[in-house]
Design a protein around this nucleic acid. Structure first.
Length: 662
RNA sequence: GCCGCCGUAGCUCAGGGGUAGAGCGCGCCAUUGGUAAUGGCGAGGUCGGAAGUUCGAUUCUUCCCGGCGGCACCA
């Protein structure tokens, strides 16, 4: 006797073991048809799975959230089947689900081209139409390895060899296609439906290691019905419109150019935005007890050797070679011959700083520091250069020249927790001011290769963890991803199309103070090592502004908008009054422009709306007579008639932004 | 750095072995118009760069540069 409890609490009894399919049929023919899989005591299983003991069981249909996982994974299998049919010389490797879809990696001598995607997709629809039964088989491991090796599927064989000995080796068969898979799967390919689309083609290294061969990856998206698919595709299109690279051009904020790859040319409007954010940050740091410093761009190799960067970070550094015996002080790229410098050359290497920390330690080391002075929170809007791999460059998000809102907190070990908590609170408050209520915090703990004793790591990790809990922040664990010198927190924001970017960071460092011999005088009169906390909130201005542009889709709140107000006239008769309005705005410290062109008001509204100017003050003869303005907000249809004085006061208050009153 | 795709006017894109075209934008003229497209005229391109094939290359081939999407990288 097997008793099945359904989600609604009702119970069904069977004489013996029963499959999910039988259970569904027992409940009703409609459900039997719609059933895709079962959840038995919390675990998702095939519809054909035999339930032998009393269990809580839910029948999964396409309406369940779980169904998407099944559909997407089946979609990957159907794609692999299609690929094997069309291109038999292809080897299949792995094909997991990802957010919104799936991918499958294939090994093939000739790479796929975009046209192939259409053919594969068409074949996938055929396979769905064939409605092939999907069956699960458990194989003997060595039989499975032999089977795949004989079939020329060396990657699959390698995967099976890696499966732990106590695990079952299960294969799923649909038509002539058979694949190693943990499952579960749909009962047949027909259940997949039509709501899928292959989206992109990419190279990907076998097992994610760049030393391995590159495979061909095909990405796809898959949904429960066509409506969901259409919605998703539409969302992608909309997201593209808020791409910061596109808005940067459309809104005349910045540009990139071959002559300085990976560096930003900031235009007046973009630079206004940048400065607004920077001035805001400066104020918040000041209030937060930071002192601001500025340190050199070009720093002698010796310091980088001492700090360890020359050894660990050399590949990412821009290095200039200088012959100091020459009067001109010319610099040359490393390796380039210096003309006429065979003799007497006194060559020196200088590097553009990729980080600010070693320089900050130099400031810390000037004179002596008492324990009474700690913590010292030393901030710098530090310009850094890193030679990033060409394939990594991405608009403002990944550049070779950037400015961090960097700071190093020199403190005692006892102060780590409190400083961390204070930092997280400051960060959350700042993110909130920029409109980011949600962000992901990752905790990266000790990596395999690390400096410092386990005891020190225990304490550092505990301090970070305790501080995070105290700050009420939820963590995602990122095991083994800490820096070699200490654990770190990463604060991650998301761009318009769902790509994650690390912005804020907070790292505990016991190593650099040691390497650069930083010390303070303790209560006992003896020298002690300070701990360094490396921390940034925005991360880099470039990346953060990229995220900010996408977050607001260019429609900035008043305090951030590069151009806040346009005063637009209806007729020339209002020109003089418009100039008065303009003056009132400027006196209120607002960034305003006057538009007295001989154009229709429709034309002006449309143009400034496209430019995403938050406020348009329309003035015509009526307003001039009454001493008012007609205020129109970005995106709104209605207008508000206000006395000029009141409009100026209200806009001034609003434009003060989050720093208002401070 | 690796794989694939792409590079034609300021922008979006069409075209194609005989030195190029649209829309928007831009300029000029007319229009003084009450809240998201007024009308007319006009300017603007070494078709990413370098070689090669050809009588002739923007078009075909090769290499280089850059961009895009991934992968790898990301103190």
């Amino acid at each position: 006797m097997v008793a099945i409890t359904l989600p609604d609490g009702s119970e069904r009894k069977f004489d013996g073991p029963v499959t999910g399919a039988e259970l569904a049929a027992d409940i009703g023919p409609g459900l039997a048809k719609a059933a895709l899989a079962v959840r038995v005591d919390g675990a998702l299983k095939d519809l054909s799975a035999i339930i032998e003991t009393d269990s809580d069981v839910a029948i999964i249909t396409s309406k369940d959230d779980d169904a998407l996982e099944l559909l997407r994974h089946d979609c990957a299998h159907v794609m692999a089947e299609a690929v094997k049919e069309l291109y038999p010389d292809t080897q299949v490797t792995i094909g997991p689900n990802i957010e919104n879809g799936f991918f499958y990696d294939f090994a093939r001598d000739t790479p796929f081209v975009p046209d192939d995607l259409e053919k594969i997709e068409a074949r996938m629809h055929e396979i769905v139409k064939r409605d092939e039964t999907i069956t699960r088989e458990v194989w003997d491991r060595s039989d499975a390895i032999k089977f795949f090796k004989d079939a020329g599927e060396h990657y699959k064989a390698e995967i099976i060899e890696g499966i732990p000995g106590d695990e079952e080796v299960s294969l799923y068969r649909q038509g002539d296609f058979i694949d190693l898979c943990r499952g579960p799967h749909l009962p047949s390919t027909g259940k997949l439906g039509k709501a899928f689309k292959l989206t992109k083609l990419a190279g990907a290294y076998w097992r994610g290691d760049s030393n391995n061969e590159m495979l061909q990856r095909i990405y796809g998206t898959c949904w429960a019905d066509k409506k969901q698919l259409a919605e998703y595709l539409h969302m992608l299109e909309e997201a593209e419109k808020r791409d910061h690279r596109r808005l940067g051009r459309e809104m005349d904020l910045f540009h990139l150019q071959d002559v300085a790859i990976g560096s930003i040319f900031w235009h007046p409007k973009g630079w206004t935005l940048y400065r607004t954010v920077q001035e805001y940050m400066r104020k918040r740091l000041e209030d937060g007890g930071y002192v601001e410093v500025n340190t050199p761009q070009l720093v002698d190799r010796g310091l980088w050797e001492d700090s360890g960067h020359w050894e660990k970070f050399r590949e990412n550094m821009f290095v200039a070679e200088v012959d100091e015996s020459r009067g001109g002080g010319e610099t040359h790229a490393e390796g380039e011959a210096i003309p006429g410098a065979e003799k007497e050359a006194q060559t020196k290497f200088l590097a553009l700083k990729p980080m600010n920390c070693p320089c900050h330690v130099q400031i810390f080391k000037q004179g002596t520091t008492s324990y009474r002075e700690l913590p010292i929170r030393m901030a710098e809007f530090g310009s850094c250069h890193r030679y990033e791999p060409s394939g990594a460059l991405h608009g403002l998000m990944r550049v070779r020249a950037f400015t961090q809102d960097d700071a190093h907190i020199f403190c005692t070990e006892d102060q780590i927790e409190a400083e961390t908590k204070t930092f997280i609170e400051l960060l959350a408050s700042i993110y909130k001011d920029f409109g980011f209520e949600d962000f992901v915090v990752k905790f990266s703990d000790r990596p395999e290769v690390r400096a410092g004793s386990d005891d020190v790591w225990d304490r550092a990790e505990k301090a970070l963890m305790d501080a995070t809990v105290a700050a009420g922040v939820e963590l995602v664990m990122n095991p083994g991803e800490g820096a070699f010198y200490g654990p770190k927190l990463e604060f991650v924001l998301r761009d318009a199309i769902g790509r994650d970017w690390q912005c804020g960071t907070h790292q505990v460092d016991f190593v650099l103070p040691e390497r650069l011999d930083a010390s303070y005088i303790g209560e006992d009169g003896a020298k002690h090592r300070p701990v360094m906390l490396h921390r940034a909130i925005l991360g880099s201005f470039e990346r953060f502004l990229g995220i900010l542009i996408e977050h607001y889709a260019g429609k900035f709140p008043l305090w951030l908008a590069p151009l806040q107000i346009v005063v637009a006239t209806i007729t020339n008769a209002a020109d003089d009054y418009a100039a008065e309005v303009m003056e009132a705005m400027e006196e209120s410290g607002l960034r305003a422009e006057l538009d007295v062109r001989n154009e229709k008001i429709n034309y002006k509204i449309r143009e400034h709306s496209h430019a995403k100017v938050p406020v348009i003050l329309v003035v015509g003869a009526n307003e001039a007579d009454a001493g008012t303005v007609a205020m129109r907000r970005m995106g709104g249809k209605d207008q508000e008639i206000l006395a000029l004085k009141e409009a100026a006061a209200r806009l001034r208050d609003e434009a003060a932004g989050p720093l208002a009153g401070g």
